[in-house]
């Protein structure tokens, strides 16, 4: 029995969702509303004491780190391989996943949290919100939530995140000039990871990521969007966040 605890098909939650869909592995879906702090409730903390999402439970085994979780999905289940055959290509896949997870992603999500997660969370009663944040187990996550919710990102921090997003987008565009997929000539977990990070880039960063400036990123995103597993996974979204993916339709009007 396989259970997945996740939020929207987006960022870390979307990684195992899309990997499982590509493998054709059925799972019991447990949707947690990140903005309602479902992930910090006692029932979920009993599964993942860190209160981070996603979490995967396979029999007695619990997995909570989304990128290694995808490698587990690829190794533990039948289905099409999602890692390249050669060790060098597998190394490249992992290198880029770390670049997405630890460099590109945090900068992009700092901007996203400041414009989306923070304002959405601020709809709630401030005292209730403060108490909810105090219950977050990991100090680093408490700090991140406080900054997002109470709009405490400094102008310098946000500027630096914007600089990094522009720069990393350029690096990715160059990489895709010589590599059909992230790891090389085959679709892999690296593309699943990158799509979860970048599917909304053309909407959130229209001046940076568009058909004129980054044609290779646009084509790569569209090729992933057209895969049946991606369609199936993004149809599980419950908020307008996930429906942003529709802008990758080839007939969609360009973002303004």
């Amino acid at each position: 029995m396989l259970r997945l605890y996740h939020w929207e098909p987006n960022a870390n939650s979307g990684k195992p969702m899309l990997a499982l869909a590509e493998k054709g592995v059925p799972y019991e879906s447990h949707y947690l509303d990140l903005l309602k702090f479902d992930q910090h409730q006692a029932a979920y903390l009993a599964i993942n004491p860190d209160g981070t999402i996603p979490a995967m439970v396979h029999g007695d085994l619990v997995l909570t780190e989304s990128t290694p979780m995808m490698e587990y999905v690829d190794e533990a289940f039948d289905g099409p391989p999602l890692k390249p055959r050669s060790p060098a290509d597998r190394w490249r896949m992992r290198w880029w996943m770390r670049f997405f997870d630890a460099y590109f992603g945090p900068s992009l999500s700092m901007i996203g949290w400041s414009v989306f997660v923070g304002p959405a969370a601020r709809q709630r009663d401030p005292e209730e919100l403060r108490a909810a944040i105090d219950r977050i187990p990991l100090e680093a996550r408490r700090i991140a939530w406080r900054k997002a919710v109470f709009n405490e990102f400094s102008a310098e921090e946000l500027d630096e995140s914007r600089r990094r997003v522009v720069w990393a987008t350029g690096i990715l565009e160059k990489h895709l000039a010589t590599h059909e997929w992230i790891a090389g000539s085959t679709f892999s977990l690296g593309d699943i990871n990158g799509f979860n990070l970048g599917y909304a880039l053309p909407l959130s960063q229209p001046a940076v990521c568009n058909d004129q400036k980054t044609p290779r990123i646009m084509e790569w995103l569209r090729r992933i969007y057209e895969r049946p597993a991606t369609r199936q996974t993004w149809s599980k979204g419950r908020t307008p966040m996930a429906s942003r993916v529709a802008m990758l339709e080839r007939s969609a009007p360009a973002a303004q």
Binding site: P68, M69, R98
Partner: peptide, 17 residues
Amino acid sequence: AAYDRYRARAWGQFLGL
């Protein structure tokens, strides 16, 4: 085992950062 490999990678990621 796949789960032990997961654990190795999860340690690598957590400690690396």
